[in-house]
Amino acid sequence: MYRVFEALDELVAIVEEARGIPPTRGCIVPRGDVLDLLDDVREALPTELDDAQDVLDHRDKLVGDARITAETTVTNATEQATDTLDKSRVEADRILAEAKDHADRMVAEASSHADALVEDAKADSNRTVEEAKREYETVTARARTEADRLVEAGKASYDRAVAEGQAERERLVEATEVVQAARVEAGNVVDAAHQEADRTRAECDAYVDAKLAEFEELLTGTLRSVGRGRQQLRPNAAADYRGSATGAYRTSAAGDYRAAAAADDAPERQATRRRSRHAE
């Protein structure tokens, strides 16, 4: 194989070094050298190239045979598929017809069963309605009876309550009249008590005034006697005695007057408090 490449290189060198033929692009090469190189190339080529050419020729034959076989196979497959499709269509039509018959039978059976169920349901519903009506009438009758009883009991309770209310109102009216009478009587008693208190106060005032007058006369006489005695005992202290006696008398008289005024005002204040409590 290496000799093939050397021979080819020498052929290229001969062609490149050959003399040209003007004005053409041709050249003059030595024929013997070129033929020798070509023989060397032919001899150097391996025998596998011939085998490869034989394989290529055989390949073309195999491809042709395969194409023919494929066409035959496709034709046979098409015919077989058509036959199978026809058979499948016939079988599908048969199965479809059987399915339709079966479906019709099932529909008929379902319709009959549904009709039977509807009839049973109607009978049950009618029976339930009748029972419900009877139960309704029974319950309604009991409810009406109970309602009438409750109404009567309510009326009786209402009448009792009204009677008791009227009696209580009359009792309260009577109690109110008694209270008013008691208030009038209490007012009369209070007025009488006030009058009695005023009378007693007047009597007390007169009694106290008389006693104070007597006490004043007694005190005046006593002071005069004491003054005369002291004057006789100490003539020089007469003036002092008269001044001190007069001041003591005035002080005692003022105290007695305030005590008497307080005693006079006390019953009046008590009466005022009693009137205010009575008014409340």
Rank of each mutant, 00 (worst) to 15 (best):
E16Y: 09
I28G: 00
Q232Y: 06
G154L: 14
P235A: 15
R149V: 06
I68P: 01
E217L: 13
R224H: 03
E280C: 03
R274N: 11
A259R: 09
I28E: 09
V4Y: 11
R234G: 02
L233E: 09
E131M: 05
E216K: 07
I28T: 07
V29P: 01
V184I: 10
P46E: 04
E217W: 01
A44D: 09
L11V: 13
D40I: 07
R183G: 04
Q166V: 12
E109Y: 06
V29T: 12
E131N: 14
E168N: 07
N76R: 14
Q270P: 01
Q231S: 12
D50A: 11
V34P: 00
R228A: 10
S225A: 13
I21G: 01
A254T: 10
A182P: 00
A18V: 03
T24R: 10
G20Q: 08
E79H: 05
D265F: 01
E152I: 03
A167Y: 04
D93P: 00
E152C: 01
E48D: 09
V29L: 13
N188E: 12
E130G: 04
R42D: 15
D50F: 02
A182K: 13
A279R: 14
G229F: 00
P235G: 06
P235D: 04
D120F: 02
H194K: 09
A263F: 04
H58C: 04
L37P: 04
V226M: 02
V63Q: 12
K155W: 13
A143T: 15
I28F: 05
R273Y: 03
E109R: 14
E135L: 14
S111E: 15
R127K: 15
L150F: 05
L62C: 01
P22M: 03
E79S: 08
A116L: 08
E71H: 15
E131S: 15
A271V: 11
T200R: 11
P23S: 12
Q270V: 11
A263I: 02
G26H: 10
V4N: 03
A213S: 15
D93A: 11
A237W: 02
V173L: 13
L233A: 14
A70K: 08
A182N: 12
A237Q: 07
V63T: 13
L219S: 08
S112D: 12
D54N: 09
V12C: 06
A253M: 06
Y207E: 09
G221K: 08
R134K: 14
G64C: 03
T73Q: 10
R134Y: 01
L219C: 05
E168I: 01
L117W: 00
H113F: 00
T82P: 00
A271W: 02
Q270N: 01
